[in-house]
Computed example of a mutant assay.
Amino acid sequence: MARGDKDKYTDKQKRKAEHIEEGYEAKGISKDEAEARAWATVNKQSGGGERKGGGGQAKSPAAKAKARESSAKRAAATRKGAPRPGQQLADMTKAELMERARKHDIAGRSTMRKADLLEALAKYRS
Rank of each mutant, 00 (worst) to 15 (best):
R51K: 04
K52P: 12
A82P: 07
G47M: 04
R15K: 04
A34C: 02
A76C: 08
K27Q: 10
L89C: 13
A95C: 11
A101G: 09
R74S: 03
K66F: 12
K31P: 04
M98G: 13
K31G: 09
R74I: 10
E25I: 10
N43W: 01
D91R: 06
A107T: 12
E25L: 05
K59S: 11
S71F: 04
E22Q: 09
S110L: 15
K31C: 06
A101S: 13
K12E: 08
M98H: 11
K31Q: 09
E18L: 04
A95G: 08
I106F: 07
E99C: 15
S60M: 05
A17S: 01
S46N: 07
E99R: 13
Q45V: 13
L89H: 15
R51M: 07
T78D: 14
S70W: 10
K27H: 07
M92R: 07
P85V: 09
G81Y: 02
D32C: 07
R68A: 15
M92F: 06
S70A: 14
D105F: 11
S70E: 12
W39H: 00
K27L: 08
D91C: 05
R51G: 02
A76E: 14
A67G: 14
D91F: 03
P83W: 01
Q88T: 11
R79K: 03
K16F: 06
S30C: 12
K80W: 00
T93A: 02
R51F: 01
G56A: 08
G56F: 04
A101R: 12
L97E: 05
K103W: 04
E18Y: 02
A65M: 09
A67I: 05
H19Y: 12
A58Y: 15
S70H: 14
D32H: 05
A67Q: 09
G47E: 03
A107I: 15
E21P: 00
W39A: 00
R102H: 13
K52Y: 08
